[in-house]
Design a protein around this nucleic acid. Structure first.
Lengths: 181, 181
DNA sequence: GTCTATAATTTGATAGAC
DNA sequence: GTCTATCAAATTATAGAC
Protein backbone atom coordinates (compact mmCIF):
# COMPACT_ATOMS: atom_id res chain seq x y z
CA UNK A 1 0.00 0.00 0.00
CA UNK A 2 3.00 2.31 -0.13
CA UNK A 3 2.41 5.08 -2.59
CA UNK A 4 4.61 5.61 -5.60
CA UNK A 5 6.31 8.65 -4.13
CA UNK A 6 7.49 6.71 -1.10
CA UNK A 7 8.67 3.81 -3.25
CA UNK A 8 10.74 6.20 -5.34
CA UNK A 9 12.40 7.63 -2.24
CA UNK A 10 13.06 4.11 -0.94
CA UNK A 11 14.81 3.03 -4.14
CA UNK A 12 16.68 6.32 -4.47
CA UNK A 13 17.97 6.13 -0.89
CA UNK A 14 19.29 2.63 -1.46
CA UNK A 15 21.03 3.71 -4.65
CA UNK A 16 22.53 6.85 -3.15
CA UNK A 17 23.89 4.91 -0.19
CA UNK A 18 25.59 2.52 -2.57
CA UNK A 19 26.86 4.79 -5.32
CA UNK A 20 26.43 8.41 -4.22
CA UNK A 21 24.82 11.25 -6.13
CA UNK A 22 25.91 9.95 -9.52
CA UNK A 23 25.01 6.44 -8.47
CA UNK A 24 21.35 6.76 -9.33
CA UNK A 25 19.44 7.87 -12.40
CA UNK A 26 15.78 8.51 -13.10
CA UNK A 27 15.74 5.60 -15.51
CA UNK A 28 17.21 3.09 -13.07
CA UNK A 29 14.81 4.16 -10.35
CA UNK A 30 11.88 3.96 -12.74
CA UNK A 31 12.85 0.43 -13.73
CA UNK A 32 12.89 -0.74 -10.12
CA UNK A 33 9.59 0.91 -9.25
CA UNK A 34 8.20 -0.41 -12.53
CA UNK A 35 7.10 2.89 -13.98
CA UNK A 36 8.64 5.19 -16.61
CA UNK A 37 11.27 7.81 -15.93
CA UNK A 38 8.88 10.60 -16.89
CA UNK A 39 6.62 9.45 -14.07
CA UNK A 40 9.48 9.84 -11.64
CA UNK A 41 9.89 13.37 -12.93
CA UNK A 42 6.21 13.96 -12.20
CA UNK A 43 6.84 13.33 -8.49
CA UNK A 44 10.25 14.98 -8.39
CA UNK A 45 10.72 17.57 -11.17
CA UNK A 46 14.51 17.32 -11.06
CA UNK A 47 17.33 15.41 -9.46
CA UNK A 48 17.91 18.04 -6.82
CA UNK A 49 14.34 17.69 -5.55
CA UNK A 50 14.66 13.95 -5.25
CA UNK A 51 18.04 14.04 -3.54
CA UNK A 52 16.66 16.61 -1.12
CA UNK A 53 13.70 14.42 -0.22
CA UNK A 54 15.99 11.44 0.32
CA UNK A 55 18.44 13.39 2.48
CA UNK A 56 15.75 14.99 4.61
CA UNK A 57 13.95 11.73 5.32
CA UNK A 58 17.22 9.96 6.13
CA UNK A 59 18.30 12.67 8.54
CA UNK A 60 14.95 12.59 10.30
CA UNK A 61 15.05 8.80 10.63
CA UNK A 62 18.50 8.81 12.21
CA UNK A 63 17.71 11.68 14.57
CA UNK A 64 14.50 9.93 15.62
CA UNK A 65 16.44 6.73 16.29
CA UNK A 66 18.96 8.65 18.38
CA UNK A 67 16.19 10.18 20.46
CA UNK A 68 16.78 12.39 23.47
CA UNK A 69 20.51 12.96 23.91
CA UNK A 70 20.31 13.23 27.67
CA UNK A 71 17.43 11.28 29.24
CA UNK A 72 17.38 10.92 33.02
CA UNK A 73 19.61 8.19 34.49
CA UNK A 74 21.60 7.85 31.25
CA UNK A 75 25.37 7.73 31.63
CA UNK A 76 27.91 8.91 29.07
CA UNK A 77 28.88 5.31 28.41
CA UNK A 78 25.29 4.31 27.80
CA UNK A 79 24.74 7.13 25.34
CA UNK A 80 27.98 6.36 23.53
CA UNK A 81 26.76 2.79 23.16
CA UNK A 82 23.42 4.01 21.90
CA UNK A 83 25.01 6.28 19.34
CA UNK A 84 27.20 3.53 17.92
CA UNK A 85 24.31 1.09 17.93
CA UNK A 86 22.08 3.33 15.83
CA UNK A 87 24.63 3.54 13.03
CA UNK A 88 25.63 -0.08 13.33
CA UNK A 89 21.99 -1.08 13.01
CA UNK A 90 21.52 1.21 10.03
CA UNK A 91 24.56 -0.30 8.36
CA UNK A 92 23.57 -3.91 8.97
CA UNK A 93 19.98 -3.33 7.93
CA UNK A 94 20.90 -1.64 4.66
CA UNK A 95 24.27 -3.22 4.03
CA UNK A 96 25.51 0.21 3.05
CA UNK A 97 27.17 3.28 4.49
CA UNK A 98 25.70 6.47 5.91
CA UNK A 99 23.97 8.63 3.33
CA UNK A 100 25.68 11.71 4.70
CA UNK A 101 29.13 10.17 4.42
CA UNK A 102 28.42 9.02 0.88
CA UNK A 103 27.28 12.42 -0.29
CA UNK A 104 29.90 14.37 1.64
CA UNK A 105 32.49 12.77 -0.58
CA UNK A 106 30.96 14.37 -3.61
CA UNK A 107 30.41 17.80 -2.18
CA UNK A 108 31.65 19.55 -5.31
CA UNK A 109 28.99 17.91 -7.45
CA UNK A 110 26.03 18.56 -5.15
CA UNK A 111 23.34 21.24 -5.37
CA UNK A 112 23.87 23.64 -2.48
CA UNK A 113 20.45 22.83 -1.06
CA UNK A 114 21.53 19.21 -0.56
CA UNK A 115 24.85 20.29 0.95
CA UNK A 116 22.89 22.39 3.41
CA UNK A 117 20.96 19.38 4.67
CA UNK A 118 24.17 17.39 5.09
CA UNK A 119 25.74 20.17 7.13
CA UNK A 120 22.65 20.25 9.34
CA UNK A 121 23.02 16.51 9.83
CA UNK A 122 26.66 16.83 10.87
CA UNK A 123 25.89 19.63 13.29
CA UNK A 124 22.97 17.71 14.79
CA UNK A 125 25.18 14.68 15.38
CA UNK A 126 27.96 16.64 17.03
CA UNK A 127 25.45 18.49 19.16
CA UNK A 128 23.80 15.22 20.24
CA UNK A 129 27.16 13.78 21.26
CA UNK A 130 28.15 16.88 23.20
CA UNK A 131 24.90 16.84 25.17
CA UNK A 132 24.52 13.10 25.58
CA UNK A 133 28.11 12.29 26.46
CA UNK A 134 29.17 15.56 28.04
CA UNK A 135 32.35 15.60 25.96
CA UNK A 136 34.08 18.63 24.42
CA UNK A 137 33.39 19.50 20.78
CA UNK A 138 36.58 18.00 19.42
CA UNK A 139 35.81 14.64 21.04
CA UNK A 140 32.28 14.71 19.64
CA UNK A 141 33.71 15.41 16.20
CA UNK A 142 36.12 12.50 16.53
CA UNK A 143 33.34 10.10 17.44
CA UNK A 144 31.16 11.29 14.57
CA UNK A 145 33.91 11.13 11.95
CA UNK A 146 35.12 7.75 13.22
CA UNK A 147 31.67 6.22 12.76
CA UNK A 148 31.30 7.78 9.31
CA UNK A 149 34.70 6.51 8.25
CA UNK A 150 33.97 3.11 9.75
CA UNK A 151 30.82 2.68 7.68
CA UNK A 152 32.54 3.87 4.54
CA UNK A 153 35.46 1.47 5.05
CA UNK A 154 33.15 -1.38 6.02
CA UNK A 155 31.32 -0.89 2.72
CA UNK A 156 34.60 -0.88 0.81
CA UNK A 157 35.91 -4.03 2.47
CA UNK A 158 32.47 -5.63 2.62
CA UNK A 159 33.19 -6.34 6.26
CA UNK A 160 30.57 -5.40 8.86
CA UNK A 161 33.10 -6.14 11.58
CA UNK A 162 34.75 -2.79 10.92
CA UNK A 163 31.78 -0.91 12.33
CA UNK A 164 31.64 -3.11 15.43
CA UNK A 165 35.38 -2.81 15.90
CA UNK A 166 35.45 0.99 15.72
CA UNK A 167 32.37 1.13 17.97
CA UNK A 168 34.27 -0.79 20.64
CA UNK A 169 37.15 1.67 20.57
CA UNK A 170 34.78 4.62 20.62
CA UNK A 171 33.22 3.28 23.80
CA UNK A 172 36.63 2.69 25.32
CA UNK A 173 37.63 6.24 24.45
CA UNK A 174 34.57 7.59 26.23
CA UNK A 175 35.34 5.50 29.30
CA UNK A 176 38.93 6.68 29.42
CA UNK A 177 37.91 10.31 28.95
CA UNK A 178 35.28 9.89 31.68
CA UNK A 179 37.79 8.39 34.11
CA UNK A 180 40.27 11.20 33.43
CA UNK A 181 37.88 13.88 34.72
CA UNK B 1 59.47 19.93 -17.87
CA UNK B 2 56.88 17.51 -16.55
CA UNK B 3 55.81 15.07 -19.20
CA UNK B 4 52.23 14.81 -20.38
CA UNK B 5 51.61 11.56 -18.59
CA UNK B 6 52.49 13.09 -15.22
CA UNK B 7 50.41 16.18 -15.92
CA UNK B 8 47.42 13.97 -16.66
CA UNK B 9 47.80 12.13 -13.36
CA UNK B 10 48.17 15.44 -11.52
CA UNK B 11 44.95 16.84 -12.94
CA UNK B 12 43.09 13.55 -12.51
CA UNK B 13 44.14 13.26 -8.86
CA UNK B 14 42.90 16.76 -8.13
CA UNK B 15 39.58 16.03 -9.80
CA UNK B 16 39.10 12.65 -8.11
CA UNK B 17 39.80 14.17 -4.71
CA UNK B 18 37.13 16.77 -5.33
CA UNK B 19 34.41 14.81 -7.07
CA UNK B 20 35.21 11.11 -6.88
CA UNK B 21 35.29 8.58 -9.69
CA UNK B 22 32.51 10.26 -11.64
CA UNK B 23 33.99 13.65 -10.89
CA UNK B 24 36.46 13.58 -13.74
CA UNK B 25 36.16 12.93 -17.45
CA UNK B 26 38.69 12.50 -20.23
CA UNK B 27 37.47 15.69 -21.85
CA UNK B 28 37.83 17.82 -18.73
CA UNK B 29 41.30 16.49 -18.09
CA UNK B 30 42.28 17.06 -21.69
CA UNK B 31 41.07 20.66 -21.51
CA UNK B 32 43.21 21.39 -18.45
CA UNK B 33 46.30 19.74 -19.87
CA UNK B 34 45.58 21.50 -23.16
CA UNK B 35 45.45 18.42 -25.37
CA UNK B 36 42.56 16.43 -26.83
CA UNK B 37 40.71 13.66 -25.05
CA UNK B 38 41.95 11.07 -27.56
CA UNK B 39 45.50 11.95 -26.49
CA UNK B 40 44.59 11.18 -22.90
CA UNK B 41 43.37 7.80 -24.12
CA UNK B 42 46.75 7.28 -25.74
CA UNK B 43 48.43 7.45 -22.32
CA UNK B 44 45.65 5.67 -20.44
CA UNK B 45 43.52 3.43 -22.70
CA UNK B 46 40.53 3.55 -20.38
CA UNK B 47 39.25 5.13 -17.21
CA UNK B 48 40.22 2.18 -15.07
CA UNK B 49 43.88 2.50 -16.10
CA UNK B 50 43.94 6.16 -15.23
CA UNK B 51 42.20 5.73 -11.88
CA UNK B 52 44.61 2.95 -11.06
CA UNK B 53 47.64 5.12 -11.80
CA UNK B 54 46.22 7.92 -9.67
CA UNK B 55 45.41 5.62 -6.74
CA UNK B 56 48.78 3.89 -6.80
CA UNK B 57 50.79 7.10 -6.90
CA UNK B 58 48.68 8.64 -4.15
CA UNK B 59 49.10 5.62 -1.89
CA UNK B 60 52.85 5.62 -2.41
CA UNK B 61 53.10 9.33 -1.64
CA UNK B 62 51.23 9.01 1.64
CA UNK B 63 53.14 5.91 2.74
CA UNK B 64 56.43 7.65 1.92
CA UNK B 65 55.37 10.66 3.97
CA UNK B 66 54.47 8.43 6.90
CA UNK B 67 57.87 6.78 6.78
CA UNK B 68 59.08 4.20 9.27
CA UNK B 69 56.26 3.44 11.72
CA UNK B 70 58.62 2.72 14.59
CA UNK B 71 61.95 4.58 14.40
CA UNK B 72 64.22 4.50 17.47
CA UNK B 73 63.33 6.93 20.29
CA UNK B 74 59.87 7.56 18.88
CA UNK B 75 57.01 7.49 21.40
CA UNK B 76 53.43 6.52 20.66
CA UNK B 77 52.39 10.13 21.13
CA UNK B 78 54.99 11.34 18.66
CA UNK B 79 53.88 8.86 16.03
CA UNK B 80 50.24 9.72 16.56
CA UNK B 81 51.15 13.35 15.98
CA UNK B 82 53.09 12.43 12.88
CA UNK B 83 50.20 10.42 11.47
CA UNK B 84 47.70 13.23 11.94
CA UNK B 85 50.13 15.75 10.56
CA UNK B 86 50.65 13.88 7.30
CA UNK B 87 46.94 13.90 6.52
CA UNK B 88 46.44 17.42 7.77
CA UNK B 89 49.26 18.59 5.52
CA UNK B 90 47.81 16.70 2.57
CA UNK B 91 44.42 18.29 3.18
CA UNK B 92 45.73 21.82 3.53
CA UNK B 93 48.02 21.53 0.52
CA UNK B 94 45.30 20.20 -1.77
CA UNK B 95 42.26 21.73 -0.12
CA UNK B 96 40.56 18.39 -0.60
CA UNK B 97 39.92 15.10 1.15
CA UNK B 98 41.81 11.83 1.04
CA UNK B 99 41.62 10.03 -2.28
CA UNK B 100 40.90 6.76 -0.54
CA UNK B 101 38.02 8.19 1.43
CA UNK B 102 36.57 9.79 -1.70
CA UNK B 103 36.67 6.60 -3.71
CA UNK B 104 35.57 4.34 -0.85
CA UNK B 105 32.24 6.11 -0.96
CA UNK B 106 31.66 4.93 -4.49
CA UNK B 107 32.82 1.37 -4.05
CA UNK B 108 29.91 -0.04 -6.05
CA UNK B 109 30.88 1.95 -9.13
CA UNK B 110 34.60 1.14 -9.08
CA UNK B 111 36.55 -1.38 -11.15
CA UNK B 112 37.70 -4.12 -8.79
CA UNK B 113 41.35 -3.36 -9.55
CA UNK B 114 40.89 0.11 -8.08
CA UNK B 115 39.04 -1.26 -5.08
CA UNK B 116 41.98 -3.58 -4.49
CA UNK B 117 44.42 -0.66 -4.25
CA UNK B 118 42.12 1.13 -1.81
CA UNK B 119 41.93 -1.92 0.41
CA UNK B 120 45.72 -2.15 0.39
CA UNK B 121 45.86 1.48 1.45
CA UNK B 122 43.50 0.90 4.36
CA UNK B 123 45.44 -2.14 5.52
CA UNK B 124 48.76 -0.30 5.26
CA UNK B 125 47.42 2.55 7.37
CA UNK B 126 46.05 0.29 10.09
CA UNK B 127 49.26 -1.69 10.12
CA UNK B 128 51.36 1.49 10.40
CA UNK B 129 49.28 2.66 13.35
CA UNK B 130 49.49 -0.68 15.13
CA UNK B 131 53.27 -0.76 14.82
CA UNK B 132 53.96 2.92 15.36
CA UNK B 133 51.60 3.48 18.27
CA UNK B 134 51.55 0.03 19.78
CA UNK B 135 47.76 0.09 19.94
CA UNK B 136 45.33 -2.79 19.35
CA UNK B 137 43.73 -3.21 15.92
CA UNK B 138 40.39 -1.68 16.88
CA UNK B 139 42.10 1.50 18.13
CA UNK B 140 44.16 1.71 14.94
CA UNK B 141 40.97 1.39 12.92
CA UNK B 142 39.31 4.12 14.95
CA UNK B 143 42.18 6.52 14.33
CA UNK B 144 42.23 5.78 10.61
CA UNK B 145 38.48 6.14 10.14
CA UNK B 146 38.37 9.29 12.26
CA UNK B 147 40.96 10.99 10.06
CA UNK B 148 39.18 9.89 6.89
CA UNK B 149 35.87 11.13 8.18
CA UNK B 150 37.46 14.36 9.37
CA UNK B 151 38.82 15.15 5.92
CA UNK B 152 35.53 14.30 4.26
CA UNK B 153 33.57 16.49 6.66
CA UNK B 154 36.13 19.31 6.44
CA UNK B 155 35.65 19.28 2.66
CA UNK B 156 31.87 19.37 3.04
CA UNK B 157 31.92 22.24 5.51
CA UNK B 158 34.85 23.94 3.83
CA UNK B 159 36.43 24.19 7.25
CA UNK B 160 40.03 23.04 7.70
CA UNK B 161 39.58 23.36 11.45
CA UNK B 162 37.74 20.06 11.48
CA UNK B 163 40.89 18.13 10.65
CA UNK B 164 42.90 19.94 13.32
CA UNK B 165 40.13 19.45 15.84
CA UNK B 166 39.83 15.71 15.28
CA UNK B 167 43.63 15.41 15.29
CA UNK B 168 43.73 16.91 18.77
CA UNK B 169 41.25 14.38 20.09
CA UNK B 170 43.08 11.52 18.40
CA UNK B 171 46.26 12.54 20.21
CA UNK B 172 44.41 12.83 23.48
CA UNK B 173 42.95 9.37 22.93
CA UNK B 174 46.42 7.93 22.42
CA UNK B 175 47.69 9.61 25.58
CA UNK B 176 44.78 8.27 27.62
CA UNK B 177 45.20 4.78 26.24
CA UNK B 178 48.93 4.97 26.94
CA UNK B 179 48.38 6.07 30.53
CA UNK B 180 45.87 3.27 31.09
CA UNK B 181 48.45 0.57 30.40
C1' DG C 1 52.14 11.62 -29.65
C1' DT C 2 48.67 14.38 -31.05
C1' DC C 3 45.05 15.34 -33.97
C1' DT C 4 39.94 15.08 -36.35
C1' DA C 5 35.92 12.66 -36.55
C1' DT C 6 32.66 9.78 -34.92
C1' DA C 7 30.32 5.76 -32.82
C1' DA C 8 27.48 3.95 -29.03
C1' DT C 9 25.47 4.83 -24.73
C1' DT C 10 23.56 7.25 -20.94
C1' DT C 11 21.88 11.11 -18.77
C1' DG C 12 18.46 14.87 -17.07
C1' DA C 13 14.58 16.86 -18.69
C1' DT C 14 10.18 18.28 -21.40
C1' DA C 15 5.82 18.12 -24.47
C1' DG C 16 1.63 16.31 -25.04
C1' DA C 17 -1.79 12.29 -25.37
C1' DC C 18 -4.71 9.52 -22.42
C1' DG D 1 -0.57 9.98 -12.66
C1' DT D 2 1.29 7.48 -16.11
C1' DC D 3 2.41 6.94 -20.66
C1' DT D 4 5.11 7.57 -25.56
C1' DA D 5 8.31 10.09 -27.84
C1' DT D 6 11.95 12.94 -28.09
C1' DC D 7 15.72 16.44 -27.22
C1' DA D 8 20.20 18.22 -26.02
C1' DA D 9 24.13 17.27 -23.77
C1' DA D 10 27.80 14.54 -21.92
C1' DT D 11 30.26 10.29 -21.49
C1' DT D 12 33.80 6.46 -22.67
C1' DA D 13 36.04 4.81 -26.36
C1' DT D 14 37.95 3.82 -31.19
C1' DA D 15 39.70 4.46 -36.20
C1' DG D 16 42.76 6.52 -38.95
C1' DA D 17 45.43 10.72 -40.79
C1' DC D 18 49.65 13.32 -39.86
Amino acid sequence: MTDTRTKIIDVAERMVRVGGYNGFSFREIAAEVDIKSSSVHYHFPNKEDLALAVANRYMQNILDALGDPAPVDATAEMQAGRYCQVFQHSFVESGSACLCGMLSSETALLPSSVKQVLIEFVDANVSWLEQGLGVPTSDARLIYTAMEGAMSTAALKQDVQWVASVSESVKRFVELAQAAT
